[in-house]
Amino acid sequence: MKRTCLAGAFAALMSISTAFAEHDAIAVEYVTAVEQDMVATIELTGSIEARDSVDLGFRQSGRVIEVLVEEGDHVARDQPLARLDSVQQEQGRKVAEASLAAARAALAQARQASDRAEAMLSRGVGTRAARDAAAQALSEAQGAVERAESALEQANRAVSDTVLVAPDDAVVTARNIAPGQIVGAAQPVLSLAELEGLEAVFQSADLPLLDKAMGTQVRLEAIDFDMPAMTGTVTEISPLVDPQLGTVAVRAEIDNGDGAIELLGAAVRGHMRISTSSGVLVPWTALTRHGDGAAVWLVEGEQTRLVPVEISNFGDKGVFLSAGVEAGQVVVGAGSQLLYPGRGVHQATVLP
């Protein structure tokens, strides 16, 4: 009799609990978990440089007598930029010209002597030895003319090398000489930037994410001045760490940067978004605590079940999960903080 009473009481209690749960069902947000790429944001600082630049120097040492350009000047191809004192080179050219004239005169005489010796031999009044000697003298005279022509060519080149000219249309970005200064051969004296193409150069820590940055679009913004909105594309990542700075160089070619020479040297900040891997995305509101870890409420019909999850990453739009929930499953978003085991739910038309 006692056992029958207890069974009846338990059945009544379960009936009341079920009725209470059904009566206590709340409206919550249903969210379908989706698989998305996880995107990391990297922010770098750097400066704008010319995509193609060159340091110029004279081919020979000497004293600078004239500098024809200033920093910021636009120059055309083959335009003179600076000059060295060319007195010695001019004297050398005059000596070479005189030597060539003398060698040509000697050649003319040797040719006449050779022709005369050949004619005398053909008439039988000359000797083979005389003809051979005249031919040898002619050959030596021809060699002397060739050497004199080569010497004059070198003298002309030495004179032209006293004038530094622009290799292409460009803008002067640095000037390191002044009239009266003594410069060495190949010493950089002027820096030029070509007018076509700019790039943003950043110094970054050696981040693992950089391995996936090639071809990534970079949004650029100026640090200390107003600049129109610009974007670029990562074209080069240095494979080696700079031993002095401890960073790697990242270069991004600026889209439509042709002709914007006034931006050279400007400090900029670059923003990159790099896809790292994929995960199951759920909203922030779906997360709840379960013991020492995280969990979400999984919707199963009109009931919910608390499921432990592993968080892989945090994003702007929600939380990426690596375990616990699969793409396509429905979880509770807004309203999850009001749930407890066994409480009924239904989809809300207005978010709680």
Rank of each mutant, 00 (worst) to 15 (best):
R251Q: 08
D85H: 03
Q329Y: 03
Q303I: 01
G184Q: 13
S114I: 00
S122D: 13
V319T: 09
L164E: 06
A158N: 14
P352G: 08
L209T: 06
K317C: 00
A137C: 01
L190A: 02
E262R: 03
R343Q: 15
S278F: 03
A141F: 06
S336L: 08
V172R: 04
T18S: 14
I182V: 15
E43Y: 02
T41H: 11
A348T: 10
A185C: 06
M120H: 01
A323K: 08
G180V: 07
Q142T: 10
A103D: 10
P167F: 00
R51T: 04
A229W: 06
V189Q: 09
V165G: 02
L240W: 02
D169H: 09
A101C: 01
S17K: 13
V201W: 03
E310L: 07
T32C: 01
A205G: 12
L245Y: 05
V163M: 08
Q187F: 05
S312R: 15
A229P: 01
A103G: 08
Y30C: 04
S139Q: 11
G124E: 02
D258S: 12
L209P: 00
L195R: 06
A295S: 12
W297T: 08
A110W: 06
V54Q: 10
I48T: 04
M272K: 05
M38K: 09
L100T: 07
K94L: 09
S312Y: 10
R3Q: 15
S99F: 00
R269F: 01
F225W: 01
I65S: 06
D292F: 06
G291D: 12
A137V: 04
D73G: 01
S47F: 04
I182Q: 15
M272E: 05
G184A: 14
E146R: 15
P208I: 02
S322K: 13
T127C: 01
G46I: 01
P243S: 05
I177M: 14
R123F: 04
L152D: 13
S277A: 14
Q181N: 13
L306C: 06
Q112A: 15
I177Y: 07
I48K: 06
A178P: 07
G72H: 03
A133T: 11
I261T: 13
A178W: 12
K212P: 05
S322H: 02
M230V: 07
T173F: 01
I177E: 09
L287Q: 13
K317W: 02
G318K: 02
S17Y: 13
L220I: 03
V248P: 09
A106T: 11
A295I: 11
A170I: 06
V282F: 07
V299K: 03
G333T: 06
R273T: 11
V248K: 14
A151F: 04
E71G: 03
D115R: 04
A105E: 13
G279H: 06
G126L: 03
G257A: 05
A252T: 02
G318I: 09
Q136D: 12
V67N: 09
M272Y: 04
V67A: 13
S277F: 07
V189K: 10
E221I: 00
